[in-house]
Design a protein around this nucleic acid. Structure first.
Lengths: 363, 363
DNA sequence: CTGAAAGCGCTTACAG
DNA sequence: CTGAAAGCGCTTACAG
């Protein structure tokens, strides 16, 4: 398809009757070249279909012009199904509900990648994406490190010490988590989001104690959200309590079943959507009307939260924004290698839906 | 953070007391180096924290080791919200339903990127992702072309002539579409999928004519699906007809309202999920029981199809697989530049759900 | 098995 | 405004 060897600066220079230095200048600093020369070179570039070799450019320019993004690897089938020559080969599947136990909810990574991509190209860089499923993390990391000017790593994708080591050979920013003294970081304001949501719930809820469905003890997100809940609830004098629910539907469901043996809550605040949806189901099974008798809220904004009845009021992370900020932080770090690590907290959005009494087109 | 200049082959060679050629050999063709030497070099590499410079490697090796993936650009907010120093800054939004008019349904690109990423790294390549939102398509394309050994382009991301021109300077594969004589392509078997689905519907449906809700006339997907429907329905002698519905909920809804003035259908087959969901709603409004009196099916497998009542039987594209196949096709093309363009059709999955009478855990 | 040397295709001071 | 030349950090025949 592309037959002969691609043209180089030398070919263009010869074609235009100038030196290779001039060709390079026309491409990088056109204002330093006389207009007539510039035009001539441009014509040659076009006629020969010249495309600069990025490797040579990077080597000579001491910068790759590439940013890397490392995201956690999902399992990708190695073989996969074979393509068909026989059209019409179709598989019929009984579609069960594959649980979204994933802390990174629906479209999280698409948004993250798109955000990072946009900010990266906008700055004239290209974006390399790696999940490191198929190969060992170390190998991918080493490979990436040599290819990029900076690396954004999604938190918990790599063990802390690997992050630290990588940060020694390349500017690195941690996404959705932090290692305070080691690298820059960009995360979402889980604490502030839960606090704001809780304050709102306390205002709109019907009478009755407030119940918080806590997440698993080892999750940083869960910890930050619980702090936010406490921030808000401690400033009031209403009754409240917490119950463990470990981010699962069942956990939320069971916590409510248990709680309904004593007092019915006036509000249930889930540490995530899954547990809130479980709680919602348990309340409805027990004949508690939501939101009239009890308000329910979640956190994450998974797709399922939109389709529950009533639709679930929840908090959405600004994931695209997170990608943008990560790339920008990296670019800043590349420009100023010396400065102290920075740590950003992005504000979240509360999505008001029917489960907290908000009126809504659909619900 | 990374203070002094990174070590090079020269540093490693000196440290290990060998030539740079030997260092290079240890890294690329270790079997050609004596074990003792190899160990010595490895130790030096480790001690110095040496990471090979990918640009130099690419330039010398005449191959970048990078594959590019170009996907259509969504609109990404340029400014975005500012990060806060004040935690707790939260926005409250009345959450309306943003319609998924997108032909590339939920998670389509996440799956595509992940598939491509997996296959790419598995082969020892890295993956560059570009959406080319922020910058002009031409610029991104030119930049990409110089950076990669091969380029996968999602169909309709670029005008045909740009694809053709790009294909002259780099191996290129078209994803989810084809330009038969120009490049390799990988797509989904829309026709075969719709045909298989239709045959199944004809088997399970209650009495009554079959109605096909066609897509917009300018969509290649719609055209292929309609051919598949015809393939299946022409082989039987039941009554059938088609109605235009242009891929929208409203289109599907109105087509049914219109149709119900005469005969009630025994099956409604939508060219996509949106129109099928509209049809489902219209049937239910008219008191037609689904699936008992009329079976309904869609195509695409958007998230919403899972949460309708009854849940919608639909066809899911093997999107991850599509990404894998695209990367693999590219790698094959790189290995064999001369051969004729290949065109793959990937088999789809039918997701059996309650709207066609399939029993299901949830519905 | 190992080394000296050429070369990959650019960029960028340095002169003029 | 333009050119000659050095150099970016590797890989890879070619000799030995």
């Amino acid at each position: 398809m592309q037959p002969r060897k691609s043209p180089t600066v030398y070919d263009v220079a010869e074609h235009a009757g100038v030196s290779i230095a001039t060709v390079s200048r026309v491409l990088r600093t056109p204002e330093k070249v006389a207009e007539a020369t510039r035009d001539r070179v441009h014509r040659s570039v076009h006629e020969l279909g010249y495309v600069p070799n990025a490797s040579a450019r990077s080597l000579a320019g001491r910068s790759t012009g590439v940013l890397g993004l490392l995201i956690p690897g999902h399992d990708i089938p190695s073989g996969g199904r074979r393509p068909t020559d026989a059209p019409g080969s179709v598989e019929f599947l009984d579609d069960h509900d594959d649980s979204h136990a994933d802390p990174f909810h629906d479209r999280y990574f698409e948004r993250l990648v798109r955000g990072a991509e946009a900010a990266t190209w906008r700055a004239g860089y290209a974006l390399l994406v790696a999940a490191g499923t198929s190969v060992s993390r170390e190998m991918v990391l080493r490979d990436l490190t040599g290819r990029v000017d900076g690396l954004a790593v999604v938190s918990r994708t790599l063990p802390d010490d690997l992050v630290r080591r990588a940060a020694r050979s390349v500017p690195l920013v941690l996404v959705a988590g932090a290692q305070p003294d080691v690298t820059d970081s960009v995360q979402v304001d889980n604490r502030g989001g839960m606090s704001a949501l809780t304050r709102y719930v306390l205002e709109v809820k019907p009478p009755g104690p407030t119940l918080y469905l806590a997440g698993p003890p080892d999750s940083p997100d869960a910890a930050a959200r619980e702090l936010g809940f406490h921030d808000a609830v401690r400033a009031t004098d209403g009754a409240w309590s917490t119950a463990p629910a470990d981010f699962t539907w069942q956990g939320g469901h069971d916590a409510i079943v248990d709680r309904l043996r004593s007092t019915a809550p006036g509000a249930v605040i889930g540490a995530n959507d899954q547990s809130a949806l479980g709680a919602l189901a348990a309340l409805q099974e027990a004949g508690v009307r939501v939101p009239e008798e009890c308000v329910v809220t979640g956190f994450d904004g998974i797709d399922e939260s939109r389709y529950s009845r009533p639709a679930l009021t929840t908090v959405r992370q600004p994931t695209t924004e997170l990608g943008i900020r990560a790339a920008e932080a990296l670019l800043r770090r590349i420009a100023h290698p010396g400065s102290a690590p920075t740590h950003q907290q992005l504000p979240v959005d509360v999505l008001l839906r029917a489960s907290s009494g908000a009126r809504n087109r659909r619900a």
